[in-house]
Structure formats: structure tokens, C-alpha cells
Amino acid sequence: MSPKITRINPDQLHSNPGYHHITVVEAARTAYLAGQCPLDRSGEVVGVGDVDAQIEQIAANALTALQAVGASPEDVVRSVIYVVSDDPEVLAAAWDRLNDSVIGAAFSTASTLLGVAQLGYPGQLVEVDLTAALSD
């Protein structure tokens, strides 16, 4: 049985660019993915200095991780996106690019977008943290 996921935007809260303020989940199991980084299979950072290339790798890695537990982007119930920037345009562009990626459906749920000073790998510009509801 698929998990029941309800996404809510109360009328009393501000409108937003595609995500929902609240996600309610009725599921027996959840999967908490480690932060997905722009690393290739050998552990090398892809696209140093190129946010779009890094997002492409992150999306592919996240899709693989979700599929490994029988989930899809539609099963994601929480996302946190970290971007090395304090520029609102760069943050918005990363948000748009992620929404246009193979895991775009993951970002229609409760989501947080953060500009940060640094991430864990030299040259890393983006990281995505996902939580998914799993079927029984």
C-alpha cells in the first residue's frame, strides 16, 4: 500500500514558489537520505564552479538513492537544499533548476532553501537532503 501524503497550503499563510507549507504523512516507514552531493561514482566532485552541472549530478544521485528503497520523487515529504551563496538570484536559479530536474516532484513538498558559506567537499556548491515516505 502506498503511503498517504497530503500537502497543504493554509489560506492564512503566504503563497510560495511551488512547495507546500505542510506535509502530512501516513506511512509505516520513512527513508532519510544522507545529503546528496555532486559526487560521481568514484567520489570526485562534478562540475566544480558550475551549479547546474552539480545539480544534475545531485538529481541523478538522489534518484538512485530513492529507487534503492523503492521510492520516487513523489514520495519525498521533506527537502532541504543548501547552496553556497548569499545571492537571492543564485538561490532562486538553483531552486528552479532542481524543480526542472528528474527529481523535481520532490520539491513540491515541505521544503527549505538555504544559502550557506561552505559545504563539505572542496568545490561543492549544492547539497540536497531528502526524506521519503515508503510503502508498507
Rank of each mutant, 00 (worst) to 15 (best):
P3H: 04
P3N: 00
K4T: 11
I5D: 11
T6L: 14
R7A: 05
I8W: 06
P10A: 09
D11A: 10
D11W: 02
D11S: 10
Q12V: 15
Q12F: 15
Q12G: 12
H14P: 08
S15Q: 13
N16M: 14
N16W: 07
P17Q: 11
H21G: 12
I22C: 09
I22T: 09
V24C: 11
V24R: 13
E26R: 15
E26W: 09
E26D: 15
A27W: 03
A28H: 15
A31E: 03
L33N: 01
A34S: 13
G35K: 07
C37K: 08
P38H: 06
L39D: 07
R41L: 12
R41Q: 15
S42V: 03
S42D: 13
S42M: 07
G43H: 08
G43C: 13
G43A: 10
E44T: 08
E44Q: 09
G47P: 07
V48N: 06
V48W: 02
D50G: 03
V51A: 05
V51C: 09
A53I: 08
A53T: 15
A53N: 14
Q54L: 00
I55K: 09
N61G: 03
A62S: 15
A62E: 02
L63I: 07
A65Y: 05
A65C: 13
A65I: 06
L66S: 11
Q67T: 10
Q67P: 02
A68I: 09
A68C: 11
A68Q: 14
V69Q: 02
V69R: 05
V69C: 05
G70T: 14
G70Y: 01
G70W: 01
A71Q: 04
A71F: 04
S72P: 04
P73H: 04
E74H: 13
D75E: 00
V76L: 02
V76A: 00
V76K: 03
V77M: 03
R78K: 13
I81Y: 01
V84L: 08
S85I: 09
S85M: 05
D87W: 10
P88W: 02
E89R: 12
L91P: 01
L91Q: 00
L91Y: 01
L91S: 05
A92G: 05
A92E: 15
A93S: 08
A93I: 06
W95R: 10
W95T: 04
D96T: 13
R97I: 11
R97T: 13
L98N: 03
N99A: 09
D100E: 14
D100I: 04
S101N: 12
G104H: 02
G104V: 02
A105E: 15
F107P: 03
S108F: 05
S108D: 14
T109S: 15
T109R: 14
A110C: 12
S111L: 10
S111F: 06
S111G: 05
S111K: 04
S111W: 02
T112M: 07
L113G: 03
V116Y: 11
V116Q: 04
V116G: 06
A117K: 11
A117W: 06
A117M: 08
A117C: 06
L119Q: 03
G120Q: 12
P122W: 01
G123Q: 07
L125M: 11
L125W: 01
V126A: 10
V126M: 06
E127F: 00
L130N: 00
L130C: 07
L130Q: 00
T131V: 15
A132F: 01
A132G: 08
A132S: 12
A133P: 06
L134S: 07
L134I: 10
D136P: 14
